[in-house]
Computed example of a mutant assay.
Amino acid sequence: MEKFETLTGVAAPLPIINIDTDMIIPKQYLKTIKRTGLGTALFSEMRYNEDGSENPDFVLNKPAYRNAKILVAGDNFGCGSSREHAPWALLDFGIRCVIATSFADIFYNNCFKNGILPIQVSEKELEKLMDDASRGSNSTMTIDLENQVIKGPDGGEIAFELDPFRKHCLMNGLDDIGLTMEKAPKIDAYESKMAEAHPWA
């Protein structure tokens, strides 16, 4: 998993509450178990018209936001079914940070397992960040994970809270497998010890 230390990029505004996982990645795209290639399907029902053409009014189709790395969204982001394809699609598009006032628990946990930083802020802070994100190509923000601050385009800063263990995992690029591999020497030592004690096993 790619390490997350400092992220600087365009922030796209998505002022919609209760964005569920079916909106993020509709069910017809869940047949694959690959983590790549889902970026084109991200928010597909809002991004594309019925004939497959792009909806020019959707934020990620606008020239200023096509390469957005940060998403500023409404309350209860990631609700609905527990599909890990949702963070896969966000990541494959290039989104590495989602900012909202609240997240659905399973989606929130899945973000950390896939290298995405979900940041929870107050309603007042979200209002300021949504305004910053509405500046088009001037909506560049910096997410400083080590110091736990969001730096806006005007130089203002908003601090955010994060569980120290989750922070450690993101900054070191550790998913569940990576965490297990950190303990590989102890696992190997235990297996050797058990092999000696029980050679018939």
Rank of each mutant, 00 (worst) to 15 (best):
M1V: 14
M1C: 12
E2T: 15
E2P: 13
K3G: 12
K3F: 08
K3R: 13
E5S: 14
E5G: 13
T6F: 08
L7V: 06
A11T: 01
P15G: 01
N18K: 08
I19M: 08
I19N: 02
D20C: 02
T21W: 04
I24T: 00
I25D: 01
I25Y: 07
P26Q: 08
K27A: 12
K27P: 00
Q28D: 11
Q28N: 05
L30Q: 08
K31T: 14
I33M: 14
T36D: 07
T36Y: 04
G39P: 02
T40C: 11
A41Y: 14
L42H: 04
F43M: 03
S44E: 05
Y48H: 05
D51A: 11
D51C: 14
G52A: 07
N55K: 05
P56Y: 06
P56K: 07
D57T: 15
F58Y: 14
L60S: 07
N61C: 00
N61A: 00
A64L: 07
R66W: 02
N67S: 10
N67D: 14
K69D: 02
K69P: 00
I70F: 01
I70M: 06
A73Q: 07
N76E: 09
G78L: 02
G78Q: 07
C79D: 04
G80N: 01
G80H: 00
S81L: 09
H85I: 07
P87K: 00
P87T: 04
A89R: 03
L91P: 14
D92K: 10
F93M: 03
I95C: 01
I99V: 02
A100M: 05
S102D: 00
A104D: 03
A104H: 06
F107S: 07
Y108R: 10
N109P: 03
N109A: 15
N110S: 09
F112Y: 12
F112G: 02
K113C: 13
K113L: 15
G115I: 01
G115E: 05
P118N: 06
V121A: 03
E123M: 10
E125A: 08
M130N: 03
D132T: 09
S139N: 06
S139K: 05
T140Q: 13
T142Y: 03
I143V: 05
D144G: 04
L145E: 02
L145Y: 00
L145P: 02
E146T: 11
Q148G: 07
I150E: 03
K151F: 13
K151A: 12
K151D: 09
P153V: 15
D154I: 04
G155Y: 12
I158W: 03
I158T: 14
L162T: 12
P164G: 03
H168E: 13
L170W: 01
L170F: 01
M171S: 11
N172L: 10
L174T: 04
D175V: 01
D175S: 05
I177D: 05
I177M: 09
I177N: 09
M181L: 13
E182F: 06
K183P: 12
A184N: 12
A184E: 12
A184D: 12
K186C: 13
D188Y: 11
D188W: 10
S192H: 13
M194C: 11
M194Q: 15
E196Y: 15
